[in-house]
């Protein structure tokens, strides 16, 4: 059992309806408990890759296995159960700004409730305590009843992490979680993610633009370029030159475009 990877991509391709290639023949295995960082330019397919894991995006061909089970044909309740087991963090936090912090955090739990019970607000005492605990973990215990839009960006992202924590997820997907934060809050958000990885052995997959952060937090770094997996190394083998190469190549192409245009 320990040999089986948690997530497995087999020849996964994704072509958008307008013909854009999102992902191109991706083969990738991610073991349980890894902190994986995905780097690459905007539009390289990082977000698409992440969203195929919780089926927010469907793929065109290939197969994705989680714990040995193919997930690409899941529907209805099975699909919701898959999503419930995968927490997601977004660049824009995606909190309901007009709702209280408590309600936002509890909403991470609604996958475990029937529609009516959750709509009537009948959350169990344990879950309310769990929400308070989740907030305490990210250092925002006293903000329980504050409206989400009263918080700073960094605080909002940490509430979003608490919300994901409520799902009891096996996997955390973070799509550029720090792209709209300042350097100081960046640190605390990345530390919160690392804590989930280390204390609960959650598998964390993060899209990042920042090479220094990738090197600081990752167990392993993969690089995407134009939908292709062009780099895959454990952190011990990663060199600055490698990472620079992932980013540099397209710049040459852009320059070439400009020359042709003028």
């Amino acid at each position: 059992m320990t040999e089986q990877p948690l997530i497995e991509f087999n020849h996964v391709s994704k072509i958008y309806k307008n013909g854009t290639v999102g992902l191109k023949d991706i083969n990738l295995t991610i073991p349980q408990g890894e902190f994986l960082v995905v780097v690459g330019l905007s539009g390289a397919g990082k977000s698409t890759l992440l969203r195929t894991i919780n089926r927010m995006h469907d793929i065109t061909s290939g197969d994705i296995l989680i714990e040995g089970q193919s997930i690409i044909h899941l529907q209805g309740k099975k699909l919701r159960q898959l999503r419930r087991s995968i927490g997601m963090i977004f660049q824009n936090f995606n909190l309901v700004k007009r709702s209280s912090v408590q309600r936002n955090v509890l909403s991470g739990r609604i996958g475990y409730y029937g529609t009516w019970r959750s709509i009537l607000g009948l959350f169990s005492k344990e879950d309310k305590q769990k929400a308070a605990h989740a907030l305490k973990r990210v250092g925002l215990a006293e903000k329980l009843y504050t409206r989400a839009d009263q918080l700073s960006g960094g605080q909002q992202q940490r509430v979003a992490i608490a919300r994901a924590f409520m799902q009891d997820p096996k996997i955390i997907l973070a799509d550029e979680p720090i792209a709209s934060l300042d350097p100081l809050t960046t640190e605390s958000v990345m530390n919160d993610l690392k804590k989930l990885n280390e204390e609960f052995n959650m598998t964390v997959i993060v899209n990042l633009h920042s090479v220094p952060l990738a090197q600081k937090y990752a167990d392993r770094i993969i690089g995407l370029r134009a939908g292709e997996l062009v780099y895959d190394q454990p952190i011990a083998n990663v060199t600055d030159a490698d990472l620079a190469a992932i980013y540099e190549q397209p710049k040459v192409v852009q320059l070439a475009d400009r020359v042709v245009a003028s």
Partner: peptide, 14 residues
């Protein structure tokens, strides 16, 4: 927020 809740396994009504 719609995307976030969908990703958390919510039903349409939720």
């Amino acid at each position: 927020p719609l995307e976030a809740l969908q990703a958390a396994g919510a039903t349409k009504m939720q």
